[in-house]
Structure formats: C-alpha cells, structure tokens
Simulated assay, not measured.
Amino acid sequence: MKEIQAFLKDYQREMNWEINEESYEKSKSSLLNNYMLLTTEIAEVAEELRRNFNITEQHKLNGLNETEAFKMAKEEVKEDLGKEIADCIAYICKIANFYEIDIEESFYEKMEEVKKRRNKDI
C-alpha cells in the first residue's frame, strides 16, 4: 500500500489533483469535494454489483444453473468493477496522503483492534 500511496501522491501532483492547502476554507472545500467524488465511486461499485446480479438472473433465464450463471456474470463485470474499486482507492489515498496517514499501518492496527473486540459478529 505504501507504494500505491507514493505513486498516487506523485500522480495527483502531476495531474494537479491535489487537495488544496492554501487556506482552511480551500482545504475544507477540496476535502468535501473529494469526499463526494469518493462516495460517487462507491456508488459505482454498487452499480457493478447490481449489474452482476442482473446478468446472473439473465443467464439463469437462459437455462444456466445459478452457480454457473453467477460465475459467468462475475467474469463479465470483473474489469469494470476493478476500475471502480481503483477509483475508490485513489480517492482514499488522496485523503490519507493529505493527512499523512500510512494506510497500511492504519489497516493492520485496525484489524488487530477488531480481532480483540468482545462484541464481534458471529
């Protein structure tokens, strides 16, 4: 993840897509805009999942069993779903980079915290 964060930091600078740091108001506006863009990309992930289920149902109507239909549908949405997930990662990294958060470190710390929870889902 460190490599992805470093790549995106340079990439966003090159593309002039960095979060504005000129003032509090500009940073606030830029962060909110990027958050909205992130939520839009998350919605696009949901759209690809919905498309996966719709394709599965169509394959079932065409006579495939459920398992095979779902497997074929997964292959059909895989590339587009990957692109939408990549967009989400880019926005998450942009926000993390702005706050100088090491996502990899935060991830493992959080997973350890979750492991130690008493009220875990079964």
Rank of each mutant, 00 (worst) to 15 (best):
A96F: 07
I92W: 03
I95S: 06
T40A: 12
A69P: 04
E113T: 10
F70G: 10
F53I: 12
L31T: 00
R50D: 14
E66S: 08
E68I: 12
E75V: 08
H59T: 03
E44K: 00
M36F: 15
L32G: 00
F53L: 15
N62R: 09
C88T: 02
A43K: 10
L49D: 08
E44T: 03
K83L: 12
Y108P: 05
A96T: 06
L37G: 00
G63I: 00
H59Y: 14
I85A: 08
M72P: 06
T67Q: 13
G82Q: 12
K116D: 05
E104N: 15
I42F: 00
Y91C: 02
I103V: 11
R50L: 14
K83S: 08
A46K: 14
A90C: 11
N62L: 09
S30E: 06
L81K: 01
E112K: 13
D87K: 03
C93Y: 13
E112M: 12
N54Q: 10
V45W: 01
R51L: 11
K78E: 11
I85H: 08
E57V: 09
A69G: 09
I95C: 02
I42E: 03
A73S: 15
V45D: 04
I103M: 11
V114I: 14
K78T: 05
C88Y: 04
N52K: 15
L37N: 11
T39E: 14
K74C: 14
N52A: 08
G82A: 05
N62G: 04
K71S: 15
C93F: 10
T56H: 08
I95Q: 00
I55Q: 00
I55S: 06
L64P: 02
N52T: 12
E48D: 07
G63W: 03
E112R: 13
K110V: 07
A96E: 12
I55C: 03
L32N: 04
L81S: 01
A46E: 13
N34G: 04
